[in-house]
């Protein structure tokens, strides 16, 4: 006997929340992709837990597909980040759109 399914769901939910916070509040393209990875990982945990809860092997198969999609997504995403860094010299999303990161004093800090 392991824990109830609700606890696995809560763990997945908290992990997804952490990934969401990372994606929404960091100003760094690499950290944004890292947050996406955390969210995909949380989804995989929930799928494996649901597979055990329903006694189906399907959840593990979906977790494997999530793994493959995450690998493809992160490779293309990081290649884009490297491209952007070569062209603009920054990975800050606000500085990419040609305004050269001229922030007003009240926007910094």
């Amino acid at each position: 006997m392991i824990v109830p399914y609700t606890h696995v769901m809560l763990l997945g939910g908290v992990l997804f929340l952490l990934g969401m916070i990372c994606t929404l509040t960091r100003r760094n393209l690499i950290m944004i992709i890292l947050g996406l990875e955390i969210m995909l990982n949380a989804a995989a945990i929930t799928f494996v837990g649901a597979g055990l809860h329903l006694q189906q092997i399907e959840g593990q198969a979906i977790a494997l597909f999530i793994l493959a999609v995450a690998a493809a997504e992160v490779s293309v995403g990081l290649a884009l980040v490297v491209c952007i860094y070569r062209q603009t010299g920054t990975v800050d999303p606000q500085c990419i759109e040609g305004n050269k990161c001229q922030l007003k004093p009240d926007q910094t800090g």
Binding site: I2, T6, L10, G13, F16, H53
Partner: peptide, 21 residues
């Protein structure tokens, strides 16, 4: 997320049986 977890049925609150694929 917390509301959906709290509203889940009684079966989700039982401890899951261990199984290995």
């Amino acid at each position: 997320a917390v509301l959906l977890t709290l509203l889940s049925g009684p079966r989700a609150r039982q401890p899951m049986p261990a199984a290995t694929a």
